[in-house]
């Protein structure tokens, strides 16, 4: 007879990073220092939206990966669509939620 499994939340905390250099160099650690191997249930590497957006225009992201397969019209784009919104939203991590619908540049083809 297995009794009801007691569900408890894994305690977690959010750590704010402002720069990739603040990440632990050891990939088995998560930012803030929890260890994968010793945390019950494992710890996920969690990133907030603005942290991800901060890296959107970092140098490595301007060009496609070198080994990106060529798919006509997809990874070798045939059209460049003028976006009504300039690319300047990139890196603005603090865009209010309400504005997101309007500011979202569907995609930047300017690189």
């Amino acid at each position: 007879m297995s009794g009801k499994t007691k569900v408890r939340d894994i305690p977690s905390r959010r750590v704010l990073l402002t720069d990739p250099s603040q990440l632990p160099i050891d990939y088995s650690s998560t930012p803030g220092g929890t260890l994968f191997s010793t945390t019950p249930g494992g710890t996920r590497i969690i990133y907030e939206r603005h942290e991800l957006l901060q890296l959107r225009n970092s140098p490595l992201t301007r060009t496609p990966p070198k080994n990106l397969p060529k798919i006509a019209g997809v990874t070798s784009p045939s059209t460049t669509k003028g976006s009504p919104q300039p690319d300047s939203v990139n890196g603005q991590a603090t865009i209010p939620e309400e504005k997101k619908c309007d500011e979202d540049p569907q995609f930047e083809m300017d690189i």
Partner: peptide, 17 residues
């Protein structure tokens, strides 16, 4: 990595295309 994600996302057609 986050960068490789953006590297792909930034260089393939967006949804509207």
């Amino acid at each position: 990595t986050v960068q490789s994600f953006w590297s792909v996302y930034n260089n393939i057609p967006g949804i509207s295309d």
